[in-house]
Design a protein around this nucleic acid. Structure first.
Length: 210
DNA sequence: ACGAGGATGCTCT
DNA sequence: GAGCATCCTCGTG
């Protein structure tokens, strides 16, 4: 049994994320999240659920941050990082308890991000179990946005960092399989609930229950 | 299986 | 003080 190393993975580049947010959110389904730890070994999960957040979106943290007249945005306002370079990490504390992992999309100067809501553990499951002591079953290791950050040791260290290389990055799946992908309204929000901006692999047990 | 309620910290009113 | 892009525990069936 070989332990996967960083060299095994082809990272998704900043150019990959410099596209329309909905496109990126859908394309990320089936791709990998790679979290490198000491000695070059990695925790790896397959992305099975995402959500899109855009500038024209009342549910987005940076909604209304741009001034209509000048086109500028308040760099100190909440969510200003969402205007940053594609591939940037946007990690924030939810309900004062859980870190949630987003990756910034669209060209720099345009607001957008994809929330990673669930992954399927592929490698490093033993270490995920250690971190997720509350998970009774393996199915509960990473089937939610706050759960996967705990399992993968993701916190605000990655807020404002580029996620295009180690120690935390996204990567092409080895075999580009076509997963049966479905969409639905986003989970846990009160605004713009009619938009079907959540994407997930149909019948995958690691998708969050909502 | 399923639902209620609490934890906990940051932002904005 | 209210509102959150959530999760866990502990009740009841």
């Amino acid at each position: 049994m070989t332990v996967p190393t960083v060299e095994s993975y082809q990272a998704l580049t900043s150019e990959y994320f410099a596209r329309p947010t909905l496109e990126v959110a859908r394309d990320l389904i089936g791709q990998l999240v790679v979290r490198c730890e000491d000695e070059g070994t990695c925790l790896v999960g397959r992305i099975v659920e995402t959500e899109a957040y855009t500038e024209d979106d009342p549910a987005c943290h940076a909604w209304n941050l741009r001034e209509a007249e000048t086109g500028a945005w308040d760099p100190e306002g909440r969510g200003a990082e969402l205007f940053g370079p594609p591939g940037l990490g946007y990690v924030y504390l939810c309900y004062g308890v859980h870190w949630l992992l987003n990756v910034v999309t669209e060209p720099e100067g345009t607001c957008g991000a994809v929330l990673i809501r669930a992954v399927e553990p592929l490698d490093g499951i033993g270490r995920m179990r250690e971190r997720r002591s509350a998970a009774r079953r393996d199915i509960d290791l990473t089937n939610g946005p706050g759960k996967l950050t705990e399992a993968l040791a993701v916190d605000d260290r990655f807020h404002g960092e580029m996620l295009t290389g180690p120690p935390l990055f996204f990567a092409h799946a080895p075999a580009d399989r076509d997963w049966p992908t479905a969409k639905s309204p986003r989970i846990g929000i009160q605004k713009a609930t009619e938009r079907e901006w959540r994407f997930f692999i149909r019948d995958n047990g690691f998708v969050s229950s909502g």
